[in-house]
Nucleic acid binder design. Structure first.
Lengths: 144, 144
DNA sequence: TTCTTTTTGCAAACGATTTGCATTTGCATT
DNA sequence: AATGCAAATGCAAATCGTTTGCAAAAAGAA
């Protein structure tokens, strides 16, 4: 089992190549996404964005998240059925451990689990297109 | 790996014991839940309910789902970030394979995966309170 | 049956997200 | 640098799933 790590790919280039205009709001939102370690929701991204340019609207945040998701640049999660939370789609696939007390998210990856999932799906006559594994956890306090 | 199976526990007794009144809407909704194989959302339950008694309201469905969830009689899922879908909490824990073409849900259970999850959480300093494993799949068509 | 309390149906409120539309902007072209 | 046009924006209104306040109705104990 290994931790995932943040990289910083050049999304502007990719967007341009896909024929998407690179506007001021988009640049700012991309910056926020590539420079954060957490998994913010649209409202959080919006608030960080208007600190840089207060003319940015919430709908643009939502529209941009949809755009980036379609392009595969970000991933969307709905932990606990709450609002969508986003993260840049850096390199490797990983799953999530969510601290139910703080909402913090830890990323992890297990080849063994992935293999078992494939096996199960196959034995039921299916192939996996994507999956979602979330561990809702409480921190272990050694002294109790 | 094994499939889960439907049972039909006597929820009315449990509800009474918990000091909850057993009303006509509740009886009908419980009946729907214990006699279905699928994972219906509130709207679907509502429609099935008004076929039996057209005076039942959607808010009562929602209220009842919340009640039953708190009592541990049902489980709530939010596949794909869509509306909550429910199932009776029959016996053993299981995970879900969702057919992305039809929305059908197949239940499965893997001790091996559960064990690995525990290990991972522990190695990160956490204990799992609950988890969620969903495999979004497409049916394998042998001839292509 | 009567009383008290819980539950209901309804309509209005809600939070997250999407949409229509007029205006502004990016950017390819002069 | 100025022009033109499609694409993107901001705003407000709409939408979807869900919750809530409240007066009326029903459950269950006496």
């Amino acid at each position: 089992m290994k931790h995932a790590m943040n990289q910083k790919p050049d999304y502007e280039k990719e967007l341009r190549k896909a024929g998407v205009r690179i506007t001021r709001p988009r640049r700012i939102i991309l910056d926020i996404l590539t420079s954060t370690e957490d998994h913010p929701d649209a409202m959080k991204i919006f608030h960080r964005a208007i600190e840089i340019d207060d003319s940015i609207s919430l709908s643009t945040v939502y529209r941009t998240m949809n755009l980036l998701e379609e392009m595969g640049a970000i991933h969307r999660h709905a932990f606990n059925g709450g609002p969508s939370r986003f993260e840049q789609a850096h390199g490797e696939h990983h799953d999530h451990l969510i601290d139910i007390e703080t909402g913090d998210v830890i990323e992890f990856q297990s080849d063994k689990i992935e293999k078992l999932q494939e096996e199960i799906a196959r034995s039921l006559g299916y192939e996996i297109t994507h999956h979602r594994l979330e561990l809702y956890c409480r921190k272990i306090t050694p002294g109790e």
